[in-house]
Write a protein that binds this DNA or RNA. Structure first.
Lengths: 220, 220
DNA sequence: AAAATATTGTTAAAATATTTTCAATTATGC
DNA sequence: GCATAATTGAAAATATTTTAACAATATTTT
């Protein structure tokens, strides 16, 4: 009986959110030849130092040296590997409006291991045009393209109203991971994962925290 | 002595992330005149029903009726009020690249209570132009504008390399809440809050979960 | 070479968040 | 009207995540 079911110990969402931050910090502020300590990172990120140590321990086997910290270079490589930034995934995007366009233009995703191959839209005016080096095709071609190129990741940047419909078409086309930028909850079969980029949540958290700060101030 | 320090009981980030989802669901699927039950919402969101009940109880005082559920209309209003979608905040955006453009075009933020008033950039070519009805000004004007209009929210959509610099300028200009789309950690004084929109994290979570699903499948 | 110090890694405790359990309540069907 | 089923709300139990405590170890200083 194999027992890789829960790939090691199951990775917490929180950890997955912190790792890219560490990575960014390491890349920008650490001397790759030198050492960097958990307290230093923790201080910069306003996190607990044990948290950082634990996180690092869970993705890197190289370990740290007392008094010095962790070797920056190997640590960066380990985090990148863990996050899958080295093995490239291919994706398609549906909805070539302002946001879809912006995402298609953004070069940075390739650094994270995601390559957006092409875009789809219902608008006949867009069909056949290019965004950078990426073709825009009519949505009706999506299924065929995805099946032939074995693309498993779909990005949804259509208006809320058509998101579920696009989602269903993606599932039909064999997509198993959907990155959803539409502010709606998508219903999918069990074998499909959806990750919502919820700008509304993010914005709410910001304004709530701002309000708290302002309230604190008024106290005095 | 006032005692609104911790505005009620301190709101958890998780709750703040779930509320917009409930709201979306309610608006799209609930009959506003009728009733909707926690188990129904929970089922649609793949959440625990008690979780939903607790969340709803913490933002709405109207309460539910056994066997029927919650009155949809009042519930929607309560959530919107709690999330602050009714009182509008004004913001400026710095960095009018593809992403900045996309955000400036997006009408949806006003629904969430955020109005982007104008954009700033260092590019002299953009200065003086408009994006929709919004002016683009040179970054050197930001401080003056923010101070005079008493703008407290800044959105950063510049490349990683200049994000900290822009952030510092915002703080100088009296901004106390920063919505940061650049993939870097920003260092700010204590009175300023930063909310990162971390597309890298989000993407990682998606691809990790996809990988898990694929691994599960291979089990059999 | 010995003492002081900073950092690691581990274990234990505390704090948070989620899920289970269950009595009370209200609509529905007989 | 009375029994049944569904749902609420609150309390208790679990699970998870974060923080604190501490012994072990490597560097630096005296």
């Amino acid at each position: 009986m194999t027992n890789k079911t829960k790939s090691a110990y199951a990775i917490s969402k929180q950890l997955l959110q912190r790792l890219p931050l560490y990575l960014d910090y390491l890349k920008n502020f650490a001397d790759r030849e030198g050492y960097i300590s958990a307290p230093l990172i923790a201080n910069a990120m306003k996190l607990n130092e044990v948290q950082v140590r634990k996180d690092l321990a869970s993705v890197s086997s190289s370990g740290g040296k007392p008094k010095s910290g962790f070797a920056a270079g190997p640590l960066i490589r380990d985090i990148e590997k863990f996050l899958g930034y080295d093995n490239e995934d291919e994706a398609v995007i549906v909805g070539v409006g302002h946001l879809g366009r912006a995402l298609m233009h953004y070069r940075g995703f390739e650094e994270y291991g995601l390559k957006i191959l092409m875009g789809f839209d219902t608008d006949e005016g867009l069909t056949g045009t290019n965004i950078g080096d990426k073709q825009i095709l009519h949505i009706s071609k999506m299924r065929d393209v995805c099946e032939r190129l074995k693309i498993h990741i779909g990005i949804i940047t259509v208006p809320a109203g058509s998101a579920q419909e696009v989602c269903d078409q993606m599932v039909e086309a064999g997509i198993i991971a959907i990155w959803n930028f539409a502010p709606v909850h998508l219903t999918v079969p069990d074998h499909v994962v959806v990750q919502n980029v919820n700008l509304a949540s993010s914005l709410v958290i910001l304004t709530k925290r701002m309000a708290e700060k302002l309230a604190e101030k008024e106290e005095f």
